[in-house]
Each structure stands twice: as structure tokens, then as C-alpha cells.
Design a protein around this nucleic acid. Structure first.
Lengths: 335, 335
DNA sequence: AGACAAACTTTACCCGTGTAAAAATACATA
DNA sequence: TATGTATTTTTACACGGGTAAAGTTTGTCT
């Protein structure tokens, strides 16, 4: 940088100031530096910069399972917003493993990021490790809430998802049974089951929860296996099934297909299936999946904005904020 | 580190040596340091470390489109291997955009990584930018080859994919037409078309290439739209369709379903559909998709190993290596 | 026990940038 | 043109650890 400063005819501290914020120097100075930047291809050493800056311009993004296109889409949107705001996002996936989540937390702490956007594993998370992390690094949780951790949580309103699907299904046919994993990895699943029970009670309908076995993040296979078992045992109490999430539904639809059960809302169909999330593939299932869509845009936009607010206010919020976005019903062919 | 050194009773240079390689110090010294590490939670400042080390322990991973579960799976495997070897992987997705790919290349250069595993966008890539990058950073290309760039390329043998599916389909029924995007983003698509034409010629069969419109990375939607158009125009020359890749096939299957065309290998089916990649969701399509599987494990394992070899040999290989792994036919219900 | 190599300590300097303080200069306004 | 303020220059130190050189200690082998 010293060399470059000489070459540009500007002092090193001023050049340093320029790189921290091009607008902090006089217009003529800026032009002079940028002219020199055109001649030489100097760029500051990020390690030296980050060592000395009181705070880095890095933002950590942690998702529980990147092979799920839902998170991949989320990440795309979040990354873009971070870059546009002049931050450097670093992406990490826990790949469904607690050990990996913890080690990400540790290496992220070493990165001294300005802030972190964190979608935890959920049930599999090491609460103590997360609590320690959140007390040291400004963190906004998204997608999966863990009570009291992080300075804010941005997610979707599970009750809104379920009430819309239940109401729609009930209005257009038989009331739905609810298909879920017995031990779901993601806490949203529990909220959705509770919402289902509440909504059914309010509507004075009899709830039927179908809990299937399986663990991990291979939801499609779990949905398929569980679906096959239920269909073979003939244990379906209604002709309408509401799945906890789309990936489970994708597996369930494939089980129905294997068993020759026709899914859809036409008269000649045996069963209706609906679900939640608006997974990127749900439009391409056979039949296409009726579902409740996340407000992807709002969740990612608001998560990032909340993090920026948190960073601006020095890493602490007066009180923990929780913001939930409602779902939007997407009517397709499966129900 | 000075404080920690005093606390542990070991000199700072020795502690520094320990962190670079715990085995480089005497066993008793190591034990003493690790005992102190248990009492204090000191960890070296990664920025200071990386500023001074001649080479960082970072490895960059770039994929063209993270919302494609194929790449997400690949990344999982690659990350794990890097971590196990003591490196810190940094993941980037170009999200299908050339501008993003270029900016990733730039920020990666600033990270001075020990090496980079790079799956380029392909047709959309800025060849000049990539060439500059590769000449400055030890790079191994994977998935998509760009002639002459990087020190090595690890990928799948497209001819093996296509010859296996074509032979299987021909052996068990009508010879396939080939469905592809007219302007595919990924160079593998061109190789697959050429392989199809070659194989058909060798077998003395008449080839039929169905090129559909569409650009970008939303392959499912492209496959669906193109499929609908073809089916409506009745332009299908055979009752067997081989898709260039699974995502296209997923879209095509959904078009078939919409049009009431029964896909499968039973006598009452109208059409057979097969494809390539063994996409994580191809098992859950309706019907499940017959496809040729990537050797995910070998490709990721070998890519990482090749990169380590490249790093060990100082960033240059005697000659550029290209290694292709054959496919494995996965017979399911669609053909 | 003696000899020798391996490992460690001490000392000192380096990396490339942020940042503070004081002095000097540029610009804007009346 | 004088005055005040915004910028820049100069100077100096800090960050946290890599690494080299010289001297000292430890360990191993005969």
C-alpha cells in the first residue's frame, strides 16, 4: 500500500481511508486514487485489514442443510443483499450434523464477523454451544427459532401456513389428516402440528395425526417409506392428507404413485395431498403440489435488514425481536 | 499468544510452532501446551496467521448453482475431505451469473488460498477472467471442463453415461430420441449430445435430437415447457425419450403427467423416459427415473486428492491432467 | 559418562494495514 | 482577502503472530 500510495501521489493514511470508504475522501483525491488503481492492480491485503479493523466486514451465513433447495434459494437472496451492502458473506452448511454445526460456530468466532445469520439445525443443535456463540457474536436467527438465543428471529408464521391449508382443504373437500415425522429435526414441524391441532379444534373437526418413523434430513425417503407403510396398512383416516412439509410430501406422492393411488382433486382421484413450504420442486411433482409458500423474499430481506440494524447498534438490541411472515396459499393440482 | 505462552510455560515461538503442526514439538511440550489450552480458551488470530504465512490453509470451492442438489451433495463431500486434511474450505456459488462468478474469482484471489476447486458456469463463463485466475491460483476444475484451464480436470465421462442409457433403452425397447436444451449452460450437455449421435451411428440407428428453447439454470421449467410444446405438436419420433439431464427430465415428466401420458416400462405405458446424473430427487419422481449415476464419491474424492497433490507440488503440475469417471446405470420405473 | 542431535528459549525483526495526533494545506464563505 | 473548516500529510505506534539466528537445554545412543 505504501508503494501504491507513492505511485498515486497520495499519502498512505489517506489511501487507507479511501479503501475503508471511498466517500470519506475529497472527490478530487478519490479520482486521483482511482486513476492510479487503473494503472496498477493493487488491492489491500484482507488479512492485514481484518487484523487491524475493530470489526471485519464479514457476515457469516449458516444453514442446516444445503442440499435442501429451500435453503439454497434463501442463501442466494441473502448473499446478494450482503454483497450489495458492502459485506463479504461466508457460507456454511451444517449438513445436518451437530458436530459440524459446532465446528462452524467455532471457526466463525475466529473470523470475528460483523454479524451472523444463523438457521440452526433445531432439535439436533447444541443449545449450550449456540448460547455461548450468540453472546459473543451479533447473531440473527432465521427459519428455526431457538427460544431466547440470538438478538432476533425472523421466520415464517407456521400457524398461518397450516390454517390456510386446512381451511382450503376443508372448504373444498374432506378435512385433512396431518402427516409428520415422529421426531422432526426442525422445530417448525412441532409448531405446525400444534397449529393443525388448534385449527382443527377451532373448526370443531376431528384431528388425525399420522406420525412416521425416521430421522435425519432425508425427508423424501422418510415420507416415501412412511407413506408406503401407511398405505399398505390402510390406516388412512381421510382421503385428504396434509404433509408437514413439501419434502415429506414429495416422498409421500411417490409412495402413492407406487401403490397406484391417484392423487388430485378430480372426481376420479383417490386422494388429495397438500403441504407447506413451496419447495422449488413442488411445482414439478406429479401432480403438482398444492402448498403454502414461504415469503422467501421478505424473510431473507428482513433477516438481512435486522442484522444490519443489529450491527449498527453495536451488536445488541434493546429486546429480542421475533418477526413472522404469513404464508401464501399456492393452489396446484394435488389438492 | 504471548500471554498464553507465558501461562503455558512455553516460549512463544514454540507455541507458534505447535499451532502450525502439533507434531513438530516434543511430546511433553505438546502435552504441556494442550493442558494450558484446556485452562484458557486461546486460539490464534486467523488474520494474523494468514498474513504472515507464506500460504494460507484455505481452500476455495466454487460451484455454478447451489440450488441444484447435485452440487450441494458434491460440496458436502468435498468440504468434509478438506476439513479432515486440516484445510478451511470456503464455499461460493455463482448462482448462474457470470458477474458473480467473476467477483468470486476476485475475492478468492485476495484470500490467497492454498488451492481452489472450481466448477465453472460453462458457456456463461468469462474465459479470460478464468484464465487469469488459474494462472495465479492453483486450481483444479471439476464437473465442467474448460479446455486448457486449471492444472487438472476431474469429471464424469459423458460418453459412458450416454452409451449405457442408449444401450439399455435399445435393448429393452425402442431406440431413444434425445431431449436437450438448444443452448445449454453446461458444456457437458454438448458432449452428451455428441455422444448420443456417435452411439446411435455406431449402432446404425437413426438419431433424433429434440432441442428445446430456454436459457438459464431453471432446467425443470425449461424441460416442462419444452415437453408441453413437443407433446402438443405431437412431434415425438419415438416412444422413448432420453433427456440430457435429470432436471430436464423432471420437467419433462411433469409435462407428460399434465398431458395424461403414462410414462413407464409396463405394457400399458405410452412412453419411456430416461436421463443422466442420478439427481438426488430422481428416485422420487413419478415414476422414479431411470438414469445414469455420477460416481459422486470418486469425483469428489479424486478432485480433492488432485488438489492436494497440486498444492504439494507447489501449484504446478507437469502436464494438465484430465480424469473422467464412468457412469453407473440406475434402473428404475420410468424406462 | 560423554558426545551429539533434537528441541527449546531468547532476541529481534518482519508482514501489511488501521489509526491517532499534530502540523500543513486546501477549499468555501463572507 | 481574511477566516474558519474540511482534508490531507507526517509521524509514529499498534495489531498478532511467522520466522530466523544464536545460545541453551534436553534427550538419546554408544
Amino acid at each position: 500500500m505504501a508503494e501504491f500510495a507513492i505511485a498515486s501521489g497520495i499519502s498512505r493514511p489517506t489511501v487507507s481511508k479511501y479503501f475503508n470508504d471511498p466517500n470519506s475522501v475529497r472527490q478530487s483525491t478519490r479520482a486521483q486514487i482511482e486513476e492510479a488503481l487503473g494503472r496498477f492492480d493493487y488491492q489491500p491485503n484482507i488479512y492485514a485489514v481484518n487484523q487491524n479493523r475493530q470489526m471485519t466486514k464479514n457476515i457469516g451465513i449458516i444453514v442446516p442443510y444445503l442440499a435442501d433447495p429451500f435453503f439454497a434459494e434463501m442463501v442466494r437472496s441473502i448473499e446478494r443483499r450482503c454483497i450489495d451492502a458492502g459485506f463479504s458473506p461466508s457460507l456454511f452448511s451444517s449438513h445436518g450434523e451437530q458436530a459440524l454445526e459446532n465446528s462452524i460456530l467455532q471457526s466463525l468466532r475466529a473470523m470475528k464477523p460483523a454479524g451472523v445469520l444463523f438457521a440452526p439445525l433445531g432439535r439436533e443443535s447444541d443449545k449450550a454451544a449456540i448460547e455461548t456463540f450468540c453472546s459473543n457474536v451479533p447473531t440473527v436467527l432465521f427459519d428455526s427459532n431457538i427460544e431466547g438465543m440470538g438478538e432476533a428471529f425472523i421466520g415464517s408464521d407456521n400457524h398461518s401456513f397450516v390454517s390456510q391449508t386446512v381451511d382450503y382443504l376443508t372448504r373444498t373437500g374432506e378435512a385433512p389428516s396431518f402427516l409428520e415425522m415422529k421426531h422432526p429435526a426442525n422445530p417448525n414441524a412441532n409448531k405446525r402440528r400444534d397449529a393443525y391441532l388448534n385449527v382443527m379444534k377451532e373448526r370443531q373437526l376431528e384431528p388425525h395425526v399420522l406420525s412416521i418413523e425416521g430421522s435425519g434430513w432425508g425427508f423424501e425417503e422418510i415420507g416415501r417409506q412412511g407413506g408406503l407403510k401407511i398405505l399398505e396398512e390402510g390406516g388412512l383416516p381421510t382421503n385428504t392428507v396434509l404433509c408437514s412439509n413439501d419434502r415429506l410430501a414429495i416422498g409421500f406422492l411417490s409412495a402413492c404413485f407406487e401403490k397406484g393411488i391417484k392423487v388430485g382433486r378430480d372426481d376420479d382421484c383417490d386422494m388429495r395431498v397438500a403441504s407447506h413450504d413451496d419447495h422449488p420442486f413442488s411445482r414439478f411433482t406429479c401432480p403438482s403440489l398444492t402448498t403454502a409458500a414461504h415469503d422467501y423474499t421478505s424473510v431473507s430481506e428482513y433477516s438481512v435488514e435486522m442484522l444490519f440494524r443489529l450491527i449498527d447498534s453495536g451488536g445488541r438490541l434493546e429486546k429480542r425481536e421475533e418477526i413472522l411472515f404469513p404464508a401464501k396459499l399456492i393452489m396446484r393440482e394435488s389438492a
